[in-house]
Design a protein around this nucleic acid. Structure first.
Length: 202
DNA sequence: GTTCCGATTTTCT
DNA sequence: GAAAATCGGAACA
């Protein structure tokens, strides 16, 4: 189970976001291991990306987006949900990939319990859903995914076909196609309404 | 099946 | 004071 190196994350964010498809997100919680295959991501950058939290410069919240690549950026939104991102670009340059959906692997029953749903498809097919399923909250903001024992990423089989679309839930930069997903995967969110557009080369 | 709407609180202006 | 990288339930078809 090989992890990604720091250098993997120290690159152009849309590239990192696309190459994270197929990787396994692992959460170790109270001795239990929860994991899932990443099937949907979105890229956010800095001063050239109006949709990014980092667009107007560094604030307390966006500090980690400007820091060392390969760390967890966890933020709270809509008064209810946490979202998990992985930082990228070199130190000083803002960048993060939002993990939007997982295909559950290990610890499915525990994740179903945490989510309060039976249907496997509904366990982690959204950014707020997967953090709840895996017990990820603000205490993991800044966690180093390259070295952490409680939250990390391992390499997985890359999908043969990758879909591309605009990002979801934005009021600005609506035309930028920085959402990536495993083409045809049942665990991708908004699978009927946003799985359109051209496909990127594998 | 799709569309619409309210919840709830942090963050930044 | 407004908006928010969302979710789930209700209504409708």
């Amino acid at each position: 189970m090989a992890r990604f190196s720091r250098l993997f994350f120290r690159r152009y964010t849309p590239t990192v976001a696309r190459e994270l498809l197929g990787a396994i997100l692992v959460r170790v919680l109270d001795g239990t291991t929860l994991s899932g295959r990443i099937v949907e991501t979105e890229a956010y950058r800095g001063s050239d990306d109006p949709a990014s939290h980092a667009y107007r410069g560094m604030t307390k919240r966006t500090e980690v987006m400007f820091g060392e690549p390969g760390k967890a950026y966890v933020y709270f939104t809509y008064g209810n949900h946490y979202c998990l991102n992985v930082t990228s670009e070199r130190k000083g340059e803002a960048g993060a990939t939002l993990i939007r959906a997982l295909a559950p692997l290990e610890g499915l029953e525990e994740m179903q319990r945490r989510r309060g749903v039976e249907n496997v498809r509904d366990v982690a097919n959204g950014p707020g859903k997967l953090t709840k399923a895996m017990g990820i909250d603000g205490s993991l903001n800044g966690e180093d995914l390259v070295t952490s024992k409680r939250l990390y990423l391992v390499r997985g089989e890359r999908p043969s076909s990758v879909g591309v679309s605009t990002r979801i839930g934005l009021s600005v930069a609506k035309a930028t196609e920085w959402r990536f997903f495993v083409d045809g995967d049942e665990f991708v969110s908004h699978y009927r309404t946003h799985n359109y557009r051209k496909r990127a080369a594998p």
